[in-house]
Simulated scan of single mutants.
Amino acid sequence: MLNFHPGSHLKQMPVDDCLNLIADSINLALEQTSGVKAVIECTAGQGSNLGYSFEQIAHIIDRVDDKSRVGVCIDTCHAFAAGYDLATAEGYAETWRQFDSAIGPGYLSAIHLNDSKKGLGSKVDRHAPLGEGTLGNEFFNMLMNDPRTDFIPIILETPDESLWPQEIARLYGMIK
Rank of each mutant, 00 (worst) to 15 (best):
T43V: 08
A44Y: 05
G45T: 00
G45A: 01
Q46Y: 06
G47I: 05
G47E: 03
G47R: 04
S48T: 15
L50V: 05
L50R: 04
G51M: 07
Y52P: 09
Y52G: 12
Y52W: 14
Y52D: 10
S53M: 04
S53Q: 01
S53H: 05
S53Y: 06
F54L: 02
F54S: 00
E55L: 13
E55S: 15
E55I: 13
E55Q: 14
Q56W: 01
Q56M: 04
Q56R: 01
Q56P: 00
I57R: 04
I57K: 04
I57H: 03
I57L: 15
A58H: 02
H59V: 06
H59W: 14
H59Y: 14
I60V: 10
I60Y: 00
I60F: 00
I61K: 11
D62G: 06
R63H: 11
R63L: 09
D65C: 10
D65H: 14
D66C: 09
D66R: 10
D66M: 08
D66K: 09
K67N: 02
K67S: 02
K67M: 01
S68P: 09
S68I: 09
R69H: 13
R69G: 12
V70A: 01
V72T: 07
V72N: 06
V72I: 12
V72A: 11
C73G: 05
C73W: 10
I74S: 11
T76H: 00
C77S: 09
C77T: 08
H78V: 11
H78K: 09
A81T: 03
A82T: 05
G83S: 09
G83R: 05
G83N: 04
Y84F: 12
D85Y: 00
D85S: 02
L86W: 09
T88L: 10
T88E: 07
T88P: 12
A89Y: 08
E90K: 15
E90V: 15
E90N: 13
E90D: 14
G91Y: 05
G91C: 07
T95S: 03
T95K: 01
T95M: 08
W96Q: 04
W96G: 07
R97V: 12
Q98K: 15
Q98M: 15
F99N: 02
D100L: 03
I103C: 07
G104R: 00
G104P: 03
P105A: 15
P105C: 13
G106P: 07
Y107H: 10
Y107I: 04
Y107N: 03
L108A: 04
I111D: 01
H112F: 09
H112P: 11
N114W: 01
N114D: 01
N114L: 06
D115L: 11
D115W: 14
S116Y: 01
